[in-house]
């Protein structure tokens, strides 16, 4: 029975990992065939670094993810504090407003945003992509920060005021440190959602500006190209490295704190 359980879990992991590993392995394949191994090569990486269009789209993906997640985190955190302080109808209205884009199908969000861009005559390109990404990232920041605010002791803010802190100071040195994990989680969620997005970017871009997802989509429709494997390998390894780096930072910080408490 134990063996059965282990092999089932193993099979599922195989199912999840095999396509990605094969994708990475074939970025080093000298033969363009997808079925046979033709020897090790870095040719596709060399070709990738000569392909300005593909590199630009990788650059766009990263810039948009960074800018959109930072703006969404700032705006979203402030909004979450405001929503937390609201009561009754207004509060439930704002929470429903936050859930609406999360539940709404991507493609509907995308085409509706495209209609707005056309109506407001906002040129489609980098700016429109940024606006769209900030918009779909915002709710994820709010749903990450709100639970942290709910866990707060409602009296610590008043206590800070009683001890003579200005409201501003009370927010920055009492409330903010306590909700920081939620803000950070929201930022990471926004960042990964932005990197991963295809549908909304596809409809809200234009004038030749594309991100990595859009480039892969148009290349993949024309057939298979090992350059795609190469760029995806770089992106995947990059994200993996980033996540492990963040995880280590968080771990060392929390162990430092524990030591401090002792």
């Amino acid at each position: 029975m134990r063996f059965l359980k282990k092999s089932y879990l193993g099979l599922i992991f195989l199912f999840l990992y095999a396509p990605i590993l094969i994708l990475i392995i074939f970025s080093f394949n000298a033969s363009k065939s997808r079925g046979a191994w033709g020897g090790f090569t870095l040719d596709w990486y060399r070709q990738l670094f000569q392909d300005d269009a593909l590199l630009t789209s990788l650059y766009n993906t990263i810039v948009i993810a960074i800018v959109a997640s930072i703006v969404a985190t700032l705006l979203g955190t402030i909004a979450a504090i405001g929503i937390y302080r609201m009561k009754g109808f207004r509060k439930s209205f704002m929470i429903n407003l936050t859930y609406l884009p999360i539940l709404n199908p991507d493609i509907v969000t995308a085409i509706s945003f495209m209609l707005l861009l056309i109506y407001l005559k906002i040129p489609r390109g980098m700016l429109s992509l940024l606006l769209a990404h900030i918009t779909f990232c915002l709710p994820f920041v709010i749903i990450s920060v709100l639970p942290k605010l709910r866990q707060l002791d409602p009296q610590i803010y008043d206590a800070a005021l009683d001890l003579g802190a200005t409201p501003k100071r009370a927010y920055f040195s009492v409330i903010l440190p306590q909700i920081l994990p939620g803000i950070f989680a929201g930022f990471l969620l926004a960042f990964t959602m932005s990197i991963d997005d295809f549908v909304i970017s596809y409809f809200t871009t234009g004038n030749g500006v594309s991100n990595l997802s859009i480039s892969i989509y148009s290349m993949a429709r024309r057939g298979i190209n090992p350059k795609i494997n190469a760029v995806l390998t770089i992106l995947f390894v990059g994200i993996l490295a980033l996540m492990f780096f963040i995880n280590r930072r968080v771990n060392t910080n929390s162990s430092k704190k524990e030591r401090g408490n002792v």
Binding site: P19, I20, L23, T192, I195, D196, F198, L212, S213, I216, Y217, A220, I228, L232, L235, F236, I239, L240, M243
Partner: peptide, 9 residues
């Protein structure tokens, strides 16, 4: 963490 499009590709 692999891009959604990449997983499909």
């Amino acid at each position: 963490w692999m891009n959604f499009l990449a997983r499909t590709y």
